[in-house]
């Protein structure tokens, strides 16, 4: 293994930044595209993560309700409950007895006229309405679970909120699809622009490269400044949007919380640190990665050393 001198590393880093400076216009275009790419990624991520969180919260409220045959024993109900709990897609199973069902109904239906419900004290109209409320990990699994539940002995009826489940699931999928497609297009544009910048840099330094090769520069020495250039463009292009996003996210949070107080019940933001814990490494890896790949690809094509 050959060791690299510190002075060689600093020289090549210096040359990389000089390349950016010499080639200002192209470098600026690349940094701007990278900034746009990472900014949109961050924006999509922030919106997506918050929306997913909201969808997830909504999903938690979506339940499948299982009603039993008349005359079923508590033991049989318990057995059904145990079978349901074994299913992987089931997050939680809550037993609602006939009394609890009636209490809950009473509160909603006879609100303000509670005396009207007193006539039913010893005659629960919902006597056959004991049920299991089943909450899922993923609402897209709902229909298969319902089919299973309907096949169980002792089950009279299964209620489900099919439309809600499918809509939520579809919206989630659609957001992910748009998100991924958009990011792929942006990455391709960013790589293309970085590649153009490096190609121009190689053309500008053609004579210098030729002399370096004749003097006896190693391939890695000739390539290093261009790799540094690509990575630096990627790095600058990911730090700028991260700073913009940080200020934007905080401002939007404050603005929405202050101006739309009525929305805060169901519009809760994921805290800044939770978003940026993911976004910072993601943006940096992507920025540096795109810069590296863009320059590496170009060097392979245009710099035969």
């Amino acid at each position: 293994m050959t060791s690299v001198r510190f002075s060689t590393i600093t020289y090549n880093i210096g040359q990389g930044f000089k390349n950016i400076w010499r080639n200002k216009l192209f470098s600026l275009a690349s940094i701007a595209t990278m900034t746009a790419c990472i900014f949109l990624l961050g924006l999509f991520y922030s919106i997506g993560a918050n929306f997913s969180e909201m969808v997830h919260t909504a999903e938690e409220g979506v339940a499948v309700t299982v009603f039993f045959d008349a005359g079923i024993t508590q033991e049989q109900i318990d057995n059904i409950g145990n079978e349901i709990k074994k299913r992987g897609e089931v997050r939680d199973v809550k037993f609602v007895s006939a009394e609890e069902a009636w209490d809950s109904f009473k509160v909603e239906y006879f609100k303000g006229r509670e005396e009207l419900a007193e006539g039913f004290v010893n005659d629960n109209p919902l006597a056959n309405q004991a049920n299991y409320e089943i909450y899922l990990n993923d609402v897209s699994m709902q229909s298969s679970l319902v089919t299973y539940l309907e096949s169980l002995d002792g089950v009279r009826q299964v209620n489900q909120s099919e439309v809600v489940a499918e809509t939520l699931s579809d919206v989630n999928k659609l957001i992910s699809l748009i998100f991924v497609s958009f990011i792929i297009i942006l990455i391709a544009i960013a790589i293309f622009l970085i590649s153009n910048t490096i190609t121009t840099g190689i053309a500008v330094r053609k004579e210098e490269i030729a002399i370096m090769k004749l003097i006896g520069a190693k391939d890695s020495f000739v390539r290093a400044p261009f790799i540094v250039e690509g990575i630096a463009i990627g790095l600058i292009g990911s730090i700028i949007p991260l700073v913009i996003l940080l200020f934007m996210y905080k401002s939007v949070m404050v603005y929405v919380t202050e101006k739309f107080i009525f929305l805060t019940n169901f519009l809760t933001f994921i805290p800044v640190h939770e978003i940026f814990e993911v976004l910072v490494p993601l943006a940096l890896i992507l920025g540096i990665g795109i810069g590296y790949i863009g320059s590496r690809m170009t060097l392979k094509k245009h710099l035969k050393v």
Partner: peptide, 24 residues
Amino acid sequence: FRLLQDRNVYENVAFAMKVVEAPT
């Protein structure tokens, strides 16, 4: 001659040593 036009006399000569990774 093929000298680097953006570098002075000293830098042009030093360049040959930097390229072969000679110590500063």
